Amino acid sequence: MLLRHIRYLLAVAEHRNFTRAAEALHVSQPTLSQQIRQLEESLGAPLLDRSGRSISLTDAGQAYVRFARLALQDLEAGSRAMHDVQDLSRGHLRLAMTPTFTAYLIGPLLARFNRLYPGITLSIEELTQDRIEAALGEDLLDIGIGFTGEHGPDIECEALFVEQLSVVVGANHPQSSRLVWLEQPLVLLNTGFATRRHIDDYCRRQGVKPRIAMQANSISAIIEIVRNTPLATVLPQALAEAQRGLRAVIIDPPLPQRTAALLSRKGAYRSAACRAFVELIKAQPTTD
């Protein structure tokens, strides 16, 4: 059995079609079929059910693929470890964060990281926390920035700082000094965002129904809407302080706090670049 056999099987399992899998692997379909047959013969069991319109895994195939994915992740981590540059003169970091952090935390943080380690390249993604955890589990990320709470069994969570949510209005909001926020029309993130779930939980506890005039799936869009309209929103207080033309409004009872956290896959190898980033973000001043 060779490593390519595992890669070929995983591609067929993902695409559920020999033609599409062969195209993704840049091999011919007969070559792919032959390699899968060789793997099945070496294991002594059929791994694929070819009887339907699309290819599916047999019970044996499902069991094997689960461990094959883990083995491939470990092999790729081993390759990165072997080529890791301990002096940080070069390297690569794969990072993702939930959307609110892109508006106030990540810019200054990565500016410092780049000044300290200019030879390190970064891949940065903005994802929901569920997608961050899935990407960590598939070894597509080195580290994520999200929140404490419930996580998958393979995810390790390290608390960073407490983040305070706040009502946010434009700097020239006509009622900014006497805002009764639940009486105001709001623009909120849609329900796929952790921030929105915190807001909805707060409203349920208070027994109120907010007046939602707009919903969006973009932090930058919400910021521009609040800057240019009388609408209010709910976002981290630190974001309002970092963004020009916004103002945080204190309400009673206060909106919930939440704890920002580093997310990683349990047992995953941390490169020198990843360790340097973790050290830098942990040295950040905490957010009150």
Rank of each mutant, 00 (worst) to 15 (best):
R247I: 04
Q237L: 06
R4S: 11
S264N: 00
G192E: 08
A276K: 03
C157N: 03
T229F: 06
L9A: 07
S51F: 07
L239Y: 01
R244G: 07
E133R: 09
R7W: 06
G152H: 03
E23K: 08
E133A: 14
G44S: 07
Q237H: 12
E76Y: 12
D84W: 04
L280C: 12
L88R: 00
G207L: 08
G91R: 00
A232G: 05
A63R: 05
G44P: 08
L235M: 14
P230W: 02
R244C: 07
E163V: 15
L25E: 08
P253D: 05
A221N: 10
D139Q: 05
C274Y: 03
F193K: 04
C157P: 01
H92I: 03
H83I: 01
A135D: 14
A260Q: 08
L75W: 00
H198R: 02
T102R: 11
I281G: 00
F161S: 15
L165S: 06
G107L: 06
I212E: 11
T195Q: 11
S89P: 03
V249T: 03
N172P: 01
E150Q: 14
Q184S: 09
I250D: 15
R80I: 02
Q206I: 01
K282W: 00
E183P: 04
A81G: 05
R265P: 12
R94T: 12
Q284F: 07
F101S: 11
A268S: 13
I199Y: 08
R131K: 11
M82Y: 06
I223N: 10
S54N: 13
H83L: 14
R211D: 03
G61P: 10
A194I: 08
S176Q: 11
R211A: 02
P174W: 05
M97H: 13
L188G: 09
P118I: 00
S123C: 03
R197M: 04
D201F: 01
E224W: 02
Q164L: 09
Y269Q: 11
E126S: 13
L140A: 15
K266R: 13
A134C: 03
I212G: 05
S42L: 12
N228W: 04
A135I: 08
E41K: 12
P210W: 02
D154A: 13
H83Y: 05
T31C: 07
P174A: 04
D252S: 15
Q215K: 08
I106Q: 04
A11M: 05
G144P: 08
D130H: 09
R115A: 01
E40F: 01
L75P: 00
L72T: 09
P118K: 01
